[in-house]
Nucleic acid binder design. Structure first.
Lengths: 130, 130
DNA sequence: CAGCATCCCCGCAGATACTG
DNA sequence: CAGTATCTGCGGGGATGCTG
């Protein structure tokens, strides 16, 4: 049971071989496809599940669930399930998560800022081998 | 032909659906399994292919080649192939690549520093559902 | 609403063999 | 040495259907 979700996804794209270096796993989690987007969204405010799903867009329930569970287990995301009907679950960043999210956002921001240079480099690269 | 390597790997774990947001692709590249390690290694100095392979360890030639080609195409890594026999190829960071590498290293460093907290959180999480 | 459980497919990683 | 080309598996990820 352990992780509770389907077959303990780990959200690691690749487990770096073995137990090699555990920090790699965390890095995988925060830089994973949806991990990045979740962290950045939650940097603004807390979100409900569906709300977050809409905000990110194009994410399946399954993947969002997996991502949130993994991040929660790592202590980066706080899950607040209110015992009401219909169910209401709020997700927010922990202090630890906020630190991670800021790093990730910095990287994402850098990427968008330097996108021009990257695309220029790509064109040069592609053209050089026609 | 275009990318020249095997079936244009793109090194993107997932192409984020479509052309959605191109910056995501760069983010994928620099945070990819081997991308992270390559960038961090190259932050110290330039490396030859095999040298880099040994430094990283447990990376297949194929994946290292793919990673380097992708990063080169993005303008993050400079490839210097000397026309000698036996072949000698040196890889180093471009200015752009150095910026990216520093961001990535910062994230990696943070991860190692906070590893204790993460593992503590994991134990608590796992224990809470036995 | 917020999940959990299954099925299934495609794509990436790894292994292997071959070149300049 | 520094790649390229081809084959194969297996697992991440989407789609679908069901619960409290």
């Amino acid at each position: 049971m352990a992780v509770s979700n389907q077959s303990q996804p780990t959200l690691a794209r690749y487990d770096t071989g073995e137990a090699q270096c555990p920090y790699r796993l965390v890095l995988e989690h925060v830089t994973s496809r949806w991990g990045v987007l979740v962290l950045i969204e939650l940097l603004d405010r807390s979100y409900r599940f569906s709300e977050l799903r809409r905000a990110i867009g194009r994410v399946s329930e399954k993947m969002l669930t997996q991502t949130l569970q993994t991040l929660e287990r790592d202590g980066l995301v706080h899950r607040d399930a209110k015992p009401v009907i219909p169910p209401r679950v709020d997700y927010s960043l922990t202090d630890l998560g906020r630190e991670a999210a800021e790093q990730v956002r910095a990287l994402a921001t850098w990427t968008t800022e330097r996108m021009e240079d990257v695309e220029k480099a790509r064109r040069a690269y592609d053209e050089a081998r026609t």
